[in-house]
Design a protein around this nucleic acid. Structure first.
Ligand code: NAD
Ligand code: NAD
Lengths: 207, 207
DNA sequence: TACTATTTGTGAATCATTTCACAAACAGTC
DNA sequence: GACTGTTTGTGAAATGATTCACAAATAGTA
């Protein structure tokens, strides 16, 4: 299939969120116009984004909310649950494991790793922190699909290398550093410093 | 000045980070090739990005590390410090206030607000949590330039509206929802759910 | 000074994404 | 069933971003 741009994929997430909202509100159909308005984009963009995957609407009517929700979930691979491991039981890791929003969407943090002996064994929500040296043997028994790197930046590359070695293909990285990795591994960065600096750039003109 | 694309601005942040690394490593000059290699881009892209703002290099030699660092800081508006307010003293807010990475870069979280009476008055690092109703009067006395929204999604739009009313022009939003705002206000979203869903999409093919 | 080896800065060319515009499809109504 | 008012799906056009390719600039060397 044709390569889909990252911006399209990100917009699809947005449509899905809106559809869930519409569903909760009891709406049964929705038009590209409505999705565009609420999603900060244009009707043509909405239709083009969807058209890469098929034609899900009815001309003159719009899209069936439930049907399109299902289709999008399917397209995005959100019809299944993912087992996620968190590496780095620090401040940000703590917020992440306690957050219900991820498991609500099918991303279950099933294990937490750290290299600090004083943290190993302590209970974090449902799971006990394990020593990062157990990573290899643990994953052999109970595989995961996604890893979250929440270690200090200095440890991030080595951590990623280990994860790659273990065959992990999807990583969410919180360390503020650009990591090297093979092309078949997807690394998504959450870089809050960049977001703040983008704000700084935007404020230039405001005095 | 010509409109600079967001991707260019984000890459500039990356160059800046690399330059600081090079500086720590004692390097005095750097070429677009080196920046490209470490920054996961191309030499032509690096030069084009910089060329929007001027010509900072020396042909045959490359860029002076210190000079280019300074220029980029200036371009990005990072030569000054920013006063930042955090709205929502929850799990993610806790990680953010404790994080030194922001103040290191000139973003100082100078106040924390919540609407939960049991949290108001408790000490969070240097600052005491204040009731969100004090926002207006506080900012009249000690203005801030950037606000971080870390409230539940249901409260995010109303919170943003208040901030806009107060004249805030730059907001970092952690709530997983698309917020409406005037064109002269910049809102950067940190949406981890979208990043995870992008990973899910990438994993489609991997079985 | 002349020659070499680099590396920048930038128009032009290519590639990607967004927007436009309209025929085709459909529900509702008379 | 014909007519009306919508709204989709999609090529074509426009816009935007990246890559190419090369002249111009510079340091070093002899
Ligand atoms: N806290 C924030 O708000 C915030 C914001 C933006 C970015 N970040 C980034 O997120 C990362 C984590 O930040 P934090 O504030 O949670 O830091 P932290 O110091 O609180 O936590 C890091 C944890 O990683 C553990 N660790 C160190 N090396 C390890 C290794 N090799 N394997 C496994 N665990 C290891 C440490 O023991 C510690 O528990 C950092 O890269 C930081 O720059 C944090
Ligand atoms: N925790 C995470 O890892 C995480 C990850 C991704 C996104 N988020 C998002 O970040 C936001 C905060 O998440 P959290 O986990 O910290 O939640 P939380 O419930 O721990 O914290 C939210 C805080 O906001 C306060 N609050 C509620 N209404 C308020 C208002 N009107 N004004 C000021 N404060 C108000 C609450 O009292 C609470 O202290 C949410 O929108 C969440 O979806 C969190």
């Amino acid at each position: 299939m044709r390569k889909i741009s990252e911006s399209t994929v990100r917009r699809l997430c947005g449509y899905l969120r809106l559809l869930e909202e519409f569903q909760r509100a009891g709406k049964t159909t929705v038009s590209s116009d409505e999705l565009a308005l609420r999603g900060h984009t244009t009707p043509a963009q909405v239709r083009k984004d969807l058209s890469f995957f098929g034609s899900f609407g009815k001309r003159g009517l719009g899209y069936d909310v439930c049907d399109l929700t299902e289709r999008l979930r399917d397209i995005m691979g959100l019809d299944k649950n993912y087992r996620v491991a968190l590496i780095g039981a620090g401040k940000i890791g703590s917020a992440l494991v306690q957050y219900r929003g991820f498991s609500d969407r099918g991303f279950d943090i099933v294990s937490v790793y750290d290299n600090d002996e004083t943290k190993v064994g302590t209970s974090w929500g449902d799971v006990a922190v394990r020593h990062v040296s157990a990573l290899e043997s643990d994953l052999a028994v109970a595989p995961i699909q996604i890893a979250i790197i929440a270690t200090p930046a200095s440890e991030a590359q080595a951590t990623l290398d280990r994860l790659v070695q273990l065959g992990i293909k999807a990583v969410l990285n919180f360390a503020p550093t650009q990591l090297d990795h093979p092309a078949d591994v997807t690394v998504q960065n959450v870089n809050m410093a960049v977001e703040l600096e983008t704000l700084s750039y935007a404020l230039r003109s405001c005095g």
